[in-house]
Amino acid sequence: MDKVCASAAEAVADIRDGASLAVGGFGLSGVPEVLIQALHAQGATGLKVVSNNCGVDGRGLGVLLADGRIARVTGSYVGENKEFARQYLSGELEVELVPQGTLAERLRAGGCGIPAFYTPSGVGTQVAEGGLPWRYAPDGSVAVASPSKEVRDFDGRCCVLEHGITTDFALVRAWRGDRHGNLVFRKAAANFNPPAAMAGRITIAEVEELVDPGTLDPDRVHVPGIFVQRVLALTPAQAIDKQTEKRTVRS
């Protein structure tokens, strides 16, 4: 039952080329930076990433993106990463944009074994009707476009069919975790981390504070250990290394 890994390198060693990854975080909040850096050093490429966003230039998933390690991204927001925009518009990167709430539910549904669900989000737009550019050609034309989706009427309300998401691996960051893999997230980090953790067939969690089993209040656990296969305890320096996308001060 002890799921603690000796190092970040050990935790990500078997992530192969072309693997799919669900990655927690929102902006740079709750991003598993240490695992991402270890994966960058490990060398896996052609990765298919599912995450709210793809980090920023030089941080988060932006580290893998800048080195050409990511082949496809399923996400909601890409506006803070210039290299992401360059790769997408030049046809180097395939991108599936998904409404934010739909993305969270697709991850949660996959983790719960729900193959698909209906939602009103996206009805009447290209999300449902198809035609969103997934990949551009070098000449700027659309090489791959999103397909149309099934739409049904439920008591006079149209809803679009969305499929649950499961991935080969998931990388998440938790505030506290125990050796059995039970996780607690704090404040803004409790965003996409729980559904991402549920969606991975092998979930790897870096934790800022590792505690013994029985320490965590069961009523406070956000993700139970059954969803988590590996735990990495961060050093104090790693735990406090947190960045913000934009620092602002009041005039």
Rank of each mutant, 00 (worst) to 15 (best):
57 D>N: 12
131 G>N: 12
180 H>L: 12
85 A>I: 11
67 D>I: 10
178 D>H: 02
10 E>G: 11
198 M>T: 08
178 D>P: 10
19 A>L: 01
81 N>S: 10
107 L>A: 01
138 P>D: 12
76 S>I: 03
8 A>D: 10
202 I>K: 12
98 V>A: 01
198 M>L: 09
113 G>Y: 06
204 I>L: 10
21 L>Q: 04
174 A>N: 01
36 I>Y: 06
12 V>M: 04
47 L>M: 10
119 T>K: 13
124 G>H: 05
78 V>N: 14
156 G>A: 03
136 Y>I: 08
219 D>T: 15
107 L>F: 02
156 G>E: 01
52 N>G: 13
133 P>Q: 09
142 V>C: 07
2 D>W: 09
186 R>V: 11
179 R>Y: 12
70 I>P: 00
102 T>W: 12
7 S>N: 05
251 S>Y: 14
241 D>V: 02
250 R>E: 15
208 E>R: 02
66 A>R: 09
54 C>D: 14
203 T>E: 11
147 P>H: 02
66 A>C: 08
62 G>P: 02
27 G>M: 08
215 T>P: 04
145 A>R: 10
228 V>H: 04
15 I>F: 01
105 E>Q: 15
129 E>W: 06
40 H>V: 14
153 D>E: 10
192 F>D: 04
103 L>F: 02
124 G>F: 07
91 G>D: 02
14 D>C: 08
166 T>R: 09
235 T>N: 04
60 G>F: 00
173 R>W: 09
182 N>I: 03
140 G>P: 01
242 K>H: 10
219 D>C: 15
230 R>L: 00
66 A>G: 11
26 F>R: 10
231 V>I: 09
164 G>L: 06
158 C>V: 09
37 Q>C: 11
81 N>Y: 01
167 T>W: 12
232 L>K: 03
216 L>Y: 08
125 T>G: 03
131 G>E: 06
66 A>E: 12
84 F>P: 01
229 Q>E: 13
8 A>I: 08
194 P>G: 09
20 S>D: 00
136 Y>F: 10
105 E>Y: 09
207 V>R: 00
61 L>I: 04
217 D>K: 04
53 N>T: 11
237 A>M: 14
189 A>N: 15
165 I>A: 03
17 D>L: 10
42 Q>G: 11
242 K>V: 11
127 V>R: 09
131 G>A: 07
24 G>A: 07
11 A>D: 06
49 V>W: 09
105 E>G: 10
227 F>R: 15
204 I>W: 00
211 V>W: 00
19 A>F: 02
172 V>Q: 07
243 Q>P: 02
202 I>E: 08
